[in-house]
Amino acid sequence: MYQGIIVAGFGGQGVVSMGILLAYAGMVDGKHVTFFPAYGAEMRGGTANCSVIVAIDEIASPVVGQPDSVVVMNEPSFAKFEPMIKPNGRLFINTSLVSSRSKRDDIEVIEIPANKIAEEIGTLKIANMVMAGSLVDKTGMMAQKSLIDSVGKVYSRAKPEILKMNEVAIKRGAES
């Protein structure tokens, strides 16, 4: 198992924190992991993205050239990363904010109204967790329990009720 993942969206959508959570959870799950953020000027007001690798074997390159999975949280990220996905890879679209649809027939597209689901649960802030739940479920790269168990460790300053909402969001994402 090897998953090279790119998570992309606006700054403030929890793109980087989702990447760190995935890496941490992969480590908890006993996998090899790397996390690399785009730390350039694009973070300030524009798009943010990060690369995460979760693998059974030791990871050589931390650079994700051709992602196995891409999570797009906003429209500009779709245009930038959809063409890069490996054949037979997966595209996770937050359809609440992305109106483009993939024309590729060599990838699996998973459409999730993440903002809508997050607001139903109680806060827009956890739209990233809805996507994370789906990503972990569809790829099978780690146990959902590892992801849920890691939320409290990575977001150690979050209130208990917020942590609970994160868990619900992960589960809702996995079901959608």
């Binding site: 480590m27 090899h32 992991v33 790397t34 996390f35 690399f36 953020p37 730390y39 931390p62």
Partner: peptide, 10 residues
Amino acid sequence: DGILGQMMEP
């Protein structure tokens, strides 16, 4: 370099 400085690993 910037990769090694910014990346996270166990």
